[in-house]
Design a protein around this nucleic acid. Structure first.
Length: 296
DNA sequence: TCCCAGGTCCTGA
DNA sequence: TCAGGACATGGG
């Protein structure tokens, strides 16, 4: 059973199960966490700067108090979910068994809807380091200064109000490229439809998918990521270039279309499709699966 | 120089 | 429906 203690400005959890920091932050679900020189990770959640370090099954959250733990960390890190059950239910073939073993300790973070929408709109036809840079630029320009932590300045994610009021040129200066007008447009719509969006975690997966795709810049892939990473629709299986590769290499024919890959996986993995997708994404990306010559 | 990136939109059959 | 090209930006 995990054991939680509080010390000055830190929360310590001992005997944590199914928790691996690098797997959590490197499986592509979030863009605002960075590894520090000491191996710990620092990131921004809501309006807090958090630092996390791990030593085996001991997890230390720095720069937080008990309230932050109760109000932010517990939900954000999905600490109430039993990953053992998920792993057991997904463990139906050798490929998934291998992927689960490889990515053991992955957790699906519970992120903010607005931030996830914008972040994954930026991810379209982009690279992960670049996505992170754009989000950092936007936060520094349009977010609120939070604090300086260990020598670095941290800013909150820009609000829809701020982004809606910005000039497209200003957004472009943050290197958002051709996505810039879409971001402004989404922000403006968000101001009107905030309640609809924050209610999507209570509606059906199909309803959420259809609604999100009415945004310019949100297609099938981004919508599925938003549903999975911020609306707790775990029955979705976002198909991106990496997941396509690993699926076409290991599960389906080479010419299978994304929509059919998604249906195949959602059918196979059911209500835990999203977790399966995370294990496979991490497995594929870390091992270069399907990417021509790299060793598998 | 060309190719590609956690895609999406638009166009023409 | 569906293939094919365009799209900002930067790294290899």
């Amino acid at each position: 059973m995990m054991n939680i203690t509080e010390k000055d400005n830190q929360i310590i959890i001992q005997d944590m199960k199914d928790f691996n920091l690098s797997h959590i932050f490197d499986c592509g679900q979030c863009f605002r966490w960075n590894r520090d020189d000491d191996g710990s990770y620092t990131g921004v959640v809501k309006d807090k700067v958090l630092n996390v370090e791990q030593d085996g099954s001991t997890i230390v959250f720095n720069n937080v108090n008990r309230d932050d733990y109760e109000n932010i960390i517990k939900e954000y890190f999905d600490l109430n979910t039993d990953y053992n059950e998920i792993k057991n239910l997904l463990n139906t073939d050798e490929i998934m068994a291998e992927a689960i073993k490889f990515g053991d300790g992955i957790r699906i973070l519970n992120q903010d809807e607005w931030e996830t929408m914008i972040s994954f709109m930026i991810s379209a036809n982009n690279r992960i380091p670049m996505i992170k840079k754009v989000i950092e630029n936007l936060s520094a320009k349009f977010g609120e200064f939070i604090c300086n932590y260990r020598g670095r300045d941290y800013y909150s994610f820009p609000t829809a109000e701020k982004l809606s009021a910005a000039d497209v040129e200003e957004i472009q200066e943050c290197k958002a490229g051709f996505r810039s007008p879409r971001l402004k447009e989404a922000a403006t719509r968000f101001l009107e439809e905030r309640d609809i969006i924050y209610n999507l975690k209570n509606t059906s997966y199909d309803e959420g998918l259809t609604y999100l795709k009415t945004y310019k810049g949100i297609g099938d892939k981004v919508a599925n990521c938003v549903l999975l990473f911020s609306m707790r629709h775990f029955d979705t299986f976002p198909v991106d270039v990496w997941v396509r590769r690993v699926m076409q290499t290991l599960y389906v024919d080479k010419d299978t279309k994304d929509a059919d890959i998604r249906k195949f996986a959602e059918n196979k993995f059911g209500k835990f499709s999203g977790y399966a997708q995370q294990y496979l994404f991490y497995y594929a990306r870390e091992n270069g699966i399907g990417k021509s010559v790299k060793n598998v």
